[in-house]
């Protein structure tokens, strides 16, 4: 079976891409955020994943409101970035892992999810920025991509409970995959922020801390609020934490936090970076014991 080496979680604010391009990482405004990444680089160098299963939300690049899937799984051999409307330099393409994508799709549908399957999919800053942060200045990505899109844009959104269950189903798929791939699961976006309305600029460190404190040990605690309540607590775009919740589910039953960095504001957003590793709970031990 594939080995899940851990989970990486970070924000995907477009302005981060600008800071990287300008080389602003060490300026006073950006340093507290970028200081969260040397540990990520060490960890990735040590764990050497070769596949990334990334939960994120599209921002009007691949999907428009004409067809808006609640859950979408990419099953392409390659994923390109394109102009998102600001004429910025394009991010590097990703190689896909269509066989693993279809295996994930099979498991999701067997578990009674109804994802949209995408043999062509553009990826936007929500995937590219976390990868640029994780692997600065590589010529090509060292991981193949399985992207899983969650609708955090047009209500009704899937509940947090549903997103966690989706992630857990992806975990089952990874656990039964016969290949020897080393998989990192990634959740991007958040944390609290709101771009629109008179409440624009809203952030909520207290709710963010609640999410961060429970992500590893008790992710179900993050699923007790309705989406409406999550918007109230996290902001209209803070609901992107759904991507984190799904990725946490994909990591497996038990996890421990090995790194956390929290800083606000980055642009209009409270930004966080977290690494989790699977912990050897009873279930995980049983799963890892040698087969008779």
């Amino acid at each position: 079976m594939a080995e899940i080496i851990g989970g990486y979680f970070t924000s995907h604010v477009p302005a981060i891409g600008g800071a990287i391009q300008r080389g602003d990482q060490q300026t006073p405004y950006w340093k507290p955020f970028f200081d969260g990444f040397p540990r990520v680089h060490e960890w990735l160098a040590k764990t050497q994943p070769d596949v990334a299963v990334v939960f994120s939300n599209d921002h009007g690049l691949n999907f428009f409101l004409d067809k808006m899937p609640t859950f979408a799984v990419g099953a392409a051999a390659e994923y390109q970035n394109e102009d998102e409307g600001w004429g910025l330099p394009l991010y590097k393409p990703f190689k896909g892992h269509p066989e693993l994508s279809w295996h994930v799709i099979e498991q999701l549908v067997a578990d009674e999810f109804d994802p949209v399957t995408c043999q062509e999919m553009l990826v936007d800053h929500a995937i590219s920025i976390p990868m640029e942060l994780a692997y600065p200045s590589v010529a090509e990505w060292p991981v193949r991509l399985v992207p899983i899109g969650i609708n955090t844009v047009q209500h009704p959104l899937p509940s947090a409970k549903r997103c966690l269950a989706l992630g857990r189903s992806v975990h089952k798929a990874l656990a039964s995959w016969p290949g020897a791939e080393r998989v990192v699961v990634i959740g991007t976006g958040g944390l609290s922020h709101q771009l629109d309305g008179e409440r624009a600029g809203f952030m909520n460190p207290e709710y963010d801390r609640f999410c961060l404190d429970h992500l590893a040990s008790d992710p179900d605690a993050l699923t007790r609020q309705s989406i409406h309540e999550m918007v109230r607590l996290a902001g209209t775009q803070g609901v992107e934490v759904l991507n984190w919740i799904a990725a946490r589910g994909a990591l497996g039953p038990a996890a421990r936090e090995i790194h956390r960095n929290y800083h606000l504001p980055i642009s209009n957003t409270a930004a966080a970076t977290v690494l989790l590793e699977p912990a050897c709970g009873v279930w995980a031990l049983r799963r890892r014991s040698p087969r008779p």
Partner: peptide, 18 residues
């Protein structure tokens, strides 16, 4: 999906808005 109390200064982008 009937909504509880509105959130001040916040419009949910829902089916009506879409």
């Amino acid at each position: 999906g009937a909504r509880p109390e509105p959130i001040p200064g916040t419009t949910l982008f829902d089916g009506d808005a879409a």
